[in-house]
Design a protein around this nucleic acid. Sequence first.
DNA 1: ACAAAAGTGTTCGTTATACACCCATGT
DNA 2: ACATGGGTGTATAACGAACACTTTTGT
Lengths: 227, 227
Amino acid sequence: MSGIELAVSTVIFALRPDAEGRLVLSLPLVRRIREPFEGRWALPGGAADAGESLADTAARKLAETTGLAPSYLEQLYAFGEPDRSPTGRVVSVVYWALVHGDEADRALEGENVAWFPADAHPALAFDHDLIVGYALWRLRTKLGYARIAHAFLGPTFTLAELRQVHELVLQKPLDPANFRRQIEASGAVVPTGERQTGGRHRPPKLYRYDTTIEPVDTGPLGAAGIR
Amino acid sequence: MSGIELAVSTVIFALRPDAEGRLVLSLPLVRRIREPFEGRWALPGGAADAGESLADTAARKLAETTGLAPSYLEQLYAFGEPDRSPTGRVVSVVYWALVHGDEADRALEGENVAWFPADAHPALAFDHDLIVGYALWRLRTKLGYARIAHAFLGPTFTLAELRQVHELVLQKPLDPANFRRQIEASGAVVPTGERQTGGRHRPPKLYRYDTTIEPVDTGPLGAAGIR
DNA sequence: ACAAAAGTGTTCGTTATACACCCATGT
DNA sequence: ACATGGGTGTATAACGAACACTTTTGT
């Protein structure tokens, strides 16, 4: 064997309410209880399992630490610089995941697992700051051309909710009229025929995602890269 | 240790003349001299080295099998399905590389190393057909928005040569006028002031790549992902 | 002079963007 | 009735594709 340790980590994103109730793009971190970097926060993960696919391992570690199931999971990058861990050579295959908001509400939290705003988290162990930065960049870039925003929402949603997801992730306001037309032109969503009542104004149409269309053009990898 | 073997492989692309002298997008393959898949062609690669970065290992394996130095090298994907090798669990971090045409002419070739057209190669060992297909897709996709075409050429080139690279990779003719304007607008190239004489017609300007601009927007990973 | 490729100009259709405006509901 | 967000229409700009046209060399 090569003396190289293989690990799997996951950057998990969800939209969660902050102290004032405003939704914020957030991610769960785990506090390290051992050296190196004891006490520092880090990405959830662990050693790769010989019997599982890498994506399965990522989803399992995700579930073990947060109690959540991802609605989107994709490989991010394999980090393998020789000096990235003081304990020896570790290659980490990193995944990134999205979870539904209501799912994220049920997330475990405790002394050693906590959620932080995606762009205001403490300095992390190892090279995890770089990894989170790259995952954030991928999320924001991919949101522009791939149909992944629904992964933050439940099975049905209004276009205003979908637009809010884009606005929160991209951190800039979007024109409601143009956003509507872009989404409609993409064919990504289908109206359910129902409307959301209970608001203080005209009830908006509810939509669901068109599951007959591939969520992203991933090329020949297809669903192998995403689950 | 986990019982998982870590390997590094590389998909290498170059534009090489075929029997009739026409340039074709090609890649070098190595013939397996051991089971499993003995006699079948496969991607160059081997076990990861504990002392080197993954990219260095990819470049070294590339040099060892083909005698070439890559002008572009980027991580493609980590393939790790449990059943992808009959000998046991192998996770392969795969890179893709571009080499200059004149460099590729000096490439080693022999009984167990040969070049094949990128879209007409024999059935490969392991899941390497999938890998090559994905690498081809990435190359063609990335050529559209990133400044990588020059990696197939020498230090200076004409816009017609650069356009030919695009046409050969994308397998479709491009409008010379529009191509010129797109490249000029991107600011990717700078005129050297010289012209290429010796042709049968008006001598074209020679250009070189503007190295002060990052070749691609790779986000916070920056040059870490590319070398 | 002519062929061939270099290089420029112009038109046209699509798409992004900004913003004015109407619609439907709860209060 | 009116405030509020849902939803539609429209003018403008930016961009890419198509193609006519001029320029410059070798033969």
